[in-house]
Design a protein around this nucleic acid. Structure first.
Length: 467
RNA sequence: GUCCCCAUCGUCUAGUCUGGCCAAGGACACCGCCCUUUCACGGCGGCGACGGGGGUUCAAAUCCCCCUGGGGACGCCA
């Protein structure tokens, strides 16, 4: 049987690290087993679902390279892939349940339910529907559909979780829950329980906040004679504050991470390590697919950490194409031609953990009059002007400047200025790049060339010349 | 309240299933040194953890029980 997994977000928020981890593991598991990865949109909540958010999710997944084999934008034979378009299917199954007496209409008002819950809590009892409407029939009143848990014929539900191991729930601990709401729209549990088997899903891999939903879904599937898929529940992903990542926490959304200059493969590498330990090295997606295994997933929660992300971003940037990186930053350098920009990127990229640092280092090379405060301080020093003056003379005395004679020239300047080390190179670096840090000076000089170096030194010496 | 899940360095974790190779290994972060007449990169090293208590055993991070702590679910959200 072909492995089929699914990622089933609801379009009520942006994709964040936690949901990406779920998507990634589903993808990895499917691909590892030569199967298919399906995207299903769970938009049964009309009030909160937004099509723009669905689009954003699709876009983020595509950007990350987690591409579904089937989904709203890639049709397969199990379409439609939006739950809002599958209502007749749910109604159909609801009818079967009602017909067989395994589900019943409930006419209780929300107020009564709320009161019931409060009462039970006050009495120290678990909040559960009391089954009042079980015996009531065919009233012409608004109603919901509830599953009669007792009539499902299961006193306990046990499933072998592929991550957590054997988990057992007692059906007496589960109240008759809602299948269809007043508007005849399916509840999450009902829709998911039906869609998974109908879409041929073999393995449901999701967050562990769904563990307690699992027995409900299994009950529905059993009651309907549908195939029960295998389940695997992933430990939750926490933020740096140890709190669960929430959809409201935008700082972990893919969009903001992307805006901050993290590359897709870095995000993939960092999220892959949330509950899984494929080693410390930066790993390609192909390799990840190759070595993925659910049995290696940890069962304790993990928290997402930016340092790790940054670490992988450094690898991702060093390994990225110059042209690819150039495309990301070209808007910041409108006056620079593409070739030169790529050259500059090639010179700096191995030093950068963030796209932002590429921008800074590239702009140091390409020029403009940007100077950091530290650089200004260095340049204001009288000795530093002297060093640069000697540097200028040395260059003028030579016809070339580059790898061949850089050492000699530096030595010469050192002797004439009486400076060495930091006080020798600091002023030159500051005059040339406007910064006190950056790539190796020789590389700066090689990139700029003799004429440009001379020009920048002269510009600097010309500044404040009256001082 | 009831049910379910979880517990190793600051963080991500390896090790737990199948007890001994673990006086607990790696990575990130941090600190130091080396390389470099500068800035980085890099290299080397340091810091640093089995939540607590019982048990089983010749032997426990690993198995069992209790406690504590964290989280999740119990919704006409998903």
């Amino acid at each position: 049987m072909t492995t089929r997994t699914r990622f089933a977000p609801s379009p009520t928020g942006l994709l964040h690290i936690g949901s990406v981890r779920t998507a990634l593991f589903n993808y990895l598991y499917a691909k590892h087993n030569g199967g298919k990865f399906i995207l299903r949109i769970e938009d049964t909540d009309k009030a909160r679902s937004r099509i723009e958010l669905e689009d954003a999710i699709l876009e983020d997944l595509e950007w990350l390279g987690i591409n579904p084999d089937e989904g709203p934008s890639k049709d397969g034979r199990f379409s439609p892939y939006r739950q809002s378009e599958r209502n007749s299917i749910y109604l159909d199954h609801a009818g079967k349940l009602l017909g067989s007496g395994k589900a019943y209409h409930c006419y209780c008002t929300k107020d009564r339910l709320k009161e019931l819950t409060n009462e039970q809590k006050r009495a120290g009892k678990p909040p559960r529907y009391d089954g009042k409407c079980k015996s009531v029939k065919n009233l012409d009143l608004p109603h919901v559909l509830r599953l009669d848990v007792n009539l499902c014929g299961l006193s306990e539900i046990t499933f072998e979780d592929k991550v957590k191991g054997k988990i057992t729930f007692l059906s007496k601990d589960i109240g008759d829950f809602i299948l269809l709401d007043t508007d005849s729209l399916p509840s999450y549990n009902f829709a998911a329980a039906i869609d998974d088997p109908l879409m041929g899903i073999t393995d449901v891999i999701r967050g562990e906040d769904h563990i307690s939903n699992t027995p409900r879904q299994i009950m529905i599937q059993r009651a309907l004679g549908l195939k029960v898929p295998d389940y695997a529940h992933l430990p939750l992903v926490l933020g740096e504050d140890k709190k669960i990542l929430s959809k409201r926490d935008d700082s972990f959304s893919i969009k903001s991470l992307r805006d901050e200059g993290y590359l897709p493969s870095a995000i993939i590498n960092a999220t892959a390590r949330l509950g899984w330990a494929p080693g410390d090295e930066y790993i390609s997606i192909m390799k990840l697919i190759d070595i993925f295994s659910l049995s290696r997933i940890s069962s304790s929660p993990s928290s997402f950490n930016r340092d790790t992300l940054k670490r992988y971003n450094k690898d991702a940037i060093s390994g990225a194409d110059n042209a690819y990186l150039a495309a990301l930053i070209k808007n910041d350098f409108p006056d620079t031609d593409a070739e030169k920009l790529e050259l500059a990127i090639a010179a700096v990229k191995s030093n950068c953990g963030l796209i932002e640092s590429i921008k800074i280092l590239v702009s140091n090379l390409i020029g403009g009059n940007v100077r950091t405060e530290e650089a200004k301080t260095v340049l204001e020093d009288a000795d530093s002007r002297m060093v640069n003056r000697e540097f200028m003379k040395a260059i003028e005395a030579s016809t070339s400047l580059g790898s061949d004679n850089w050492k000699e020239i530096a030595k010469d300047v050192s002797v004439k200025s009486g400076k060495k080390g930091r006080s020798l190179y600091g002023p030159i670096r500051a005059a040339l790049t406007g910064s006190t840090s950056g790539i190796e000076l020789l590389e700066v000089i090689n990139f700029l060339g003799r004429d440009e170096v001379l020009k920048r030194i002269k510009e600097h010496l010309g500044e404040n010349s009256g001082a």
